[in-house]
Design a protein around this nucleic acid. Structure first.
Ligand code: FES
Ligand code: FES
Lengths: 146, 146
DNA sequence: TTTTTCTGTAACAAGACGGGTTACGTGTAT
DNA sequence: ATACACGTAACCCGTCTTGTTACAGAAAAA
């Protein structure tokens, strides 16, 4: 367990559901992700709350897309999973007394803020459908060559 | 213990040593950082290996700067502490088989790489002396007003 | 209606990692 | 010799993601 992989996983699931199976149970999703059904439900609960997916209980139930992939950005998914912290580094304390430490943290936060803004901007500008198209292109090339 | 604060702490220490005390023991440094002497030695070991600081054992020993703050960038310090991971998010596995997952990770890594490049570029372009000057300016303003 | 198949949640264990602590070895000035 | 200070290993702790078990609905099927 190193880095938070929920974003990556949820993107995978969304595209999987769109391209392969319109409906999938937590168990089958868990199998393809190499994880557990409870983890799937836990993580996808956020997507459901935002209305990106829909779940139904009981026999024949499972998950299905509730919106087009073109209408879901990476940022949307990132927020849906709870907007976890992006960076693994940061200042030591919140309100340092020492002025030097304040200057250090200010510079550090500046740089981090800049990087975060850029990253989230990229997340905002890329839809899940864009990634699905990347896959299409890669898949087409893959089959042409064989 | 949330985010890695070693970079922030080491910057603080370097400026502290330059502006206040040319020589400091691990214990006094630990006190000003609100931590432990062993943690200080452990973290500053990296700075010593890179030749940014020098340590001496025995009576009257301690730490002292071995280079001018103008010759040390944030990137230098970041590398000296072992270049810890910058991001808390990332792909799930290294070599995914599924082409969709590969596409997802590619896009994700693109964005992360871009943000990392920007961040490290900022680190490279800022010297510890720059931050010390920030402090000077802030301090001057602080004393003028009182 | 009973059973089966799902989701929804809570609760807990595992693993990783930064950080704090103790213990002990080593070098150096007094 | 002794006190001082670094060097390092070993260990525990808090936090966070992830995995697992357990159990309570809900809905279709039998
Ligand atoms: S397993 Fe279906 S898209 Fe990767
Ligand atoms: S305590 Fe000396 S610079 Fe902050």
């Amino acid at each position: 367990m190193r880095r938070d992989s929920r974003l990556s996983r949820m993107l995978h699931v969304l595209i999987h559901m769109d391209r392969h199976y319109k409906r999938a149970t937590s168990d089958t999703i868990a199998q393809m992700l190499g994880t557990n059904a409870v983890v799937v439900r836990r993580t996808m609960a956020g997507l459901r709350k935002q209305g990106y997916v829909h779940s139904e209980q009981g026999h024949g139930g499972g998950w299905e897309l509730a919106r087009e992939l073109t209408d879901i950005s990476l940022f949307d998914v990132y927020q849906a999973i709870g907007a976890p912290p992006l960076f693994a580094i940061g200042p030591s304390v919140e309100q340092p007394e020492c002025l030097v430490e304040q200057a250090v943290d200010a510079r550090l936060n500046d740089a981090l803020q800049e990087a975060e803004t850029l990253l989230l901007e990229r997340f905002r500008s890329v839809t899940v459908a864009d990634i699905a198209q990347d896959f299409d292109a890669c898949f087409a090339e893959h089959t042409h060559h064989t």
